[in-house]
Nucleic acid binder design. Sequence first.
DNA 1: AATTAGGCATTTTTT
DNA 2: ATGCCTAATT
Length: 765
Amino acid sequence: MTTNFLEQLNAAQRESVESVDGPVLIVAGPGSGKTRVITNRIAHLVLNRKVKPYNVGAVTFTNKASREMKDRLAPLLGENARLLTVGTFHSFCSMILRRTGENLSISNNFVIYDDDDQISAIKQSMKDVDVDPKQFNPRSVLSTISNSKSQLVNFAGFNSQKSNYYEEVVSKVFERYEDILSQGSALDFDDLLLKTHQLLTEFPDATKMYQDRFNYFMVDEFQDTNIAQYSIAKLITEISRNLCVVGDPDQSIYSWRNADIRNILSFQNDFPEAKIIPLEQNYRSSQNILGAAKNVISKNTQRVDKNLWTSNGKGSLISIDEAYDEEDEARRVIKEIQGLVDSGEYPLSDFAVMYRVNAQSRSFEIACRRFGIPYQIVGGVKFYHRREIKDITSYLRLILNPEDEISLTRIINVPPRGIGQRTLSEIYRLSRQTGKSLYESIVSVTSTDNLSHQLGNRAINSLNQFLSHIDQLKKASVSLNIMELIDLTVSETGYRKYIETDEKAEERLENIQEYRNSSREYSSVPALQGLVEFLEGISLISDIDGMEEDLDSITLITLHQSKGLEFPIVFITGMEEGLLPHIRSLDSGEPDELEEERRLCYVGMTRAEKQLYLTRAFRRGFRGTYEPTVPSRFLSDIPASLLVKNTSSPETDAPEIEMRDKMLRFRKDGSEKAISASLGNNSSLSHKNKQPTVPTRRTVNKIKVSNPTRKSNFQIGDKVRHGQFGDGIVMSSDPTGDDLQITVAFKDGGGIKKLLQSLAKLKKI
DNA sequence: AATTAGGCATTTTTT
DNA sequence: ATGCCTAATT
């Protein structure tokens, strides 16, 4: 091995790589070779500074990123690469807690509750402490708790500083929630961090062990870490002070997940001696793209300006394309891609279509299928969140820990075995009365001499049946590997038979098959440990992890998920007020949130190497009705000199004729084009064995070109009569989809109602 | 106990 | 429009 990899770096990169002693902050602009710096830095540590790989730790944002890092290190370090500790913050913490969590009475077989489980646990907690889920949204309660935890405030802390009624309520739920989790030997995502932090502050022996081990520690995507994560990194490197963080404040897009951009400031305060190295040369994008992106981001007020530059050529101008609606938008994008692919210049894998919200993916999927363009969709309906998958996972968790009440209640009657509401609430009652767990209560209820319950023979039989399933699986679990265990679960519990009656049987069975396949890599691990690791694996996996770069397909992806990726040609779609920037950020009135939207846009734009398209639709469907749109403010931040001269697209307030023309053209195209076989797949695991799915027959005449109801029969100010609400005055009338929405203020306290002209037989009076 | 109908909230982004 | 939850039905 030689050091020649250093010679291929620019000055700043090289300095980043060679500055290994003491704290370092690398401010890495988009495309500045960040991953290369990190991997080379590790290689430099091991090869030139003779640091043992065992003493190096690096945390990344996703599993995918760590996998890539390991892949890149393998050729440089050979076998040594395996000895490095590279993972996400959450998997890093999970490792610590499995090894030394017993200090905090955490079982080393703990399971990790994902989103769904957390919501179930919150709902159960709310029920237990008599909080009405209609009055308090379980999701917001959870997010309050999560927010608290990620700032290192546990239940005790939260409880002692609650200051209003809402927080009092949350506190009650919080307490119960923690009980449910510990009952289930479960930690949620935030606990992984919170408990690790607790361990590292309260248990010097364990702490010392980790501090001695991780002499060199690196944090990637530092701008998207939360307080808990930063604190952990600080604790780990308290002695060595060899903490290197890499990030870009302009790419901070996860504040809603409690990431705290102030960490960057804190770092400079906490480590005043830190070396700060900006990486400002962009190797990814053309001058035009970089210029456009810089113009967008520069409108943010709360930022330090950077001097990003590139020696790349000017490249193509940026295109702004305007469509009639989201279907038309998708059609135009996919046709453009098809054209470029047909010209032979680009492979499919060069293209990414990005959007703000997952719901937008639908129209692109449909267009891809219609035009026969293979696509890879990142995210969407999460594989591990599908019902059949969650069900089997619950069984597996019960094998590990029958006290897990969230998993138990999920599957106690799945498949149906006659354990209904009545039976369950009786068990609950007994459990609360005796202080025993649900499982224990079931065991005691089914023992012959217990007469303290009010359950019929039938219920007892069903419960016995359930118990014997769990028993049998538990016994088998000590000798079977994970794959065999899944098979046994599916057959033994009658789950397979049950699923076969489902209308989506085929799809569900396929998913179970896929689940089984994904367990293969754990099958060589000893029985129980394999189970633990498999369960951890599926909890910590993310959608982006399933993405495959070299698949011959285009990529459909959210802007958030696109962070860290790059594509020769990028389409950012839905450039509309309310979508990007998202309505939530506008409603909140928080300028910070708007700035984050702008950063999100910036992240998307800077993914592009050669060509960037920004698209929008004149109108967009929202839960049933269509709304006219306003172009995103970010579009006007791009100087005209960087844009392709507008050729065909009309302006926002296009004349009616132009609009109709577009619609006609659309209709013609859509119905004439034959449906080609689709290579797309719709699972986040991206298995290639999906049969070509028949596209949803989306009838194009959904858009009616002429519709008599579009013309309003009512003028503002007209007096009208409604069968139910009585008399009122028309306030406004707006077209929605094919219909007209009439807003009427009714007399006699009837209030203001929005009515559809076609349905609400309004009479003029 | 299981099935069904109707009411209601929901959609930002995810380790 | 869709999906989840509750209430009503059998």
